[in-house]
């Protein structure tokens, strides 16, 4: 509790991190409630507002970012696509974090060779370009959103397994684990009470960084045409569709790409900040630098 308050106070003192957090909150709110607010402007054909360039403030506000050749509002489409984009990224990261964290925990706690074998298996996934793996799986299994989540989750799995295992191996050697064993603690108690609470913050930080990464990966897949398929839309798909009209209507590809970048940037900045705030040694050096300058 006290640590959470301290974090909030620290967050308030860092303008960049605060802005990133605010940005993420807005994006999430938009994804949750935005589609209701824009109604059917995303799909509805509106010939009066065809090919509207951005910044024509005489049109209704939904058209301020422009519209496509069918007169669909770009802003409305970005809002609707936010839900799919964020949803896929979140689901993939959550799946990778849960499965990878659990596997890593087991690999780290198990005596004998099990941990070693798990690590080797994970290395196989790791040493292979994730996009190629996604290409082949989606080619064979078809580009349904659930398959995309599975593919992205599997390609991100190694990071969590490796990190969780490495942390567990380090924590396992600390004397408080031996102390708990002396008190009569079994492996389950040690895993849940002593190891997990110390591993979790690290995994969550990686999760935040990964959220940005996975969102970019999904966008790339959709851009290449093997990710999300119409009539579903994601930001990556919107960029792909806008690419054909690049010279005539640049805004079709520009705005959704910007949305991807801003969201990824906010997630990355926040994860970076959280890592520093959560690490006493790094935090000390940050503050010390401030004192040293003043």
């Amino acid at each position: 509790m006290a640590t959470r308050l301290r974090l909030l106070r620290l967050l308030r003192s860092d303008a960049v991190a605060l802005a990133a957090a605010a940005c993420l909150v807005v994006v999430v709110l938009v994804a949750l409630f935005g589609p209701m607010a824009v109604g059917d402007a995303a799909g509805g054909i509106n010939l009066r507002n065809r090919n509207a360039p951005p910044f024509e403030f005489t049109r209704p506000w939904l058209y301020w970012l422009g519209s496509d050749s069918l007169g669909r509002s770009i802003l409305a489409r970005i809002v609707v696509a936010a839900r799919t984009t964020l949803g896929i990224a979140l689901a993939s990261v959550a799946a990778a974090l849960l499965v990878g964290g659990a596997v890593g925990l087991v690999a780290g706690l198990s005596r004998g060779r099990t941990g070693e074998y798990i690590l080797r298996g994970v290395d196989v996934i790791m040493s292979f370009p994730s996009l190629l793996l996604a290409l082949i799986v989606l080619y064979v299994l078809g580009p349904a959103p659930s398959n995309i989540v599975i593919v992205l989750g599997v390609t991100r799995l190694p990071v969590y397994v490796r990190t969780a295992r490495a942390e567990v191996l380090e924590i396992r050697e600390r004397a408080f684990v031996a102390a708990a064993q002396v008190m009569g603690a079994g492996p389950v108690h040690i895993a849940l009470r002593h190891v997990l609470p110390l591993v979790l913050p690290t995994l969550l930080i990686i999760g935040a960084l990964d959220f940005a990464y996975v969102m970019l990966a999904e966008s790339a897949l959709s851009f290449l045409g093997i990710g999300v398929q119409p009539p579903d839309i994601t930001w990556g798909l919107m960029v792909a569709e806008g690419r054909a009209y690049l010279t005539a209507a640049w805004w079709l590809a520009f705005w959704p790409g910007l949305a991807i970048m801003m969201t990824a940037l906010a997630a990355n900045l926040l994860a970076m900040w959280f890592r520093i705030a959560n690490d006493p040694s790094l935090r000390g050096s940050l503050k010390a630098r401030v004192a040293g300058n003043g």
Partner: peptide, 22 residues
């Protein structure tokens, strides 16, 4: 470097074409 890690490469490629070529 954070910006580099956050930018969709396909998008920056398109924006590059738009700016430098078009």
């Amino acid at each position: 470097s954070i910006l580099g890690a956050s930018t969709p490469d396909f998008w920056i490629a398109i924006v590059g074409i738009l700016f430098f070529s078009v």
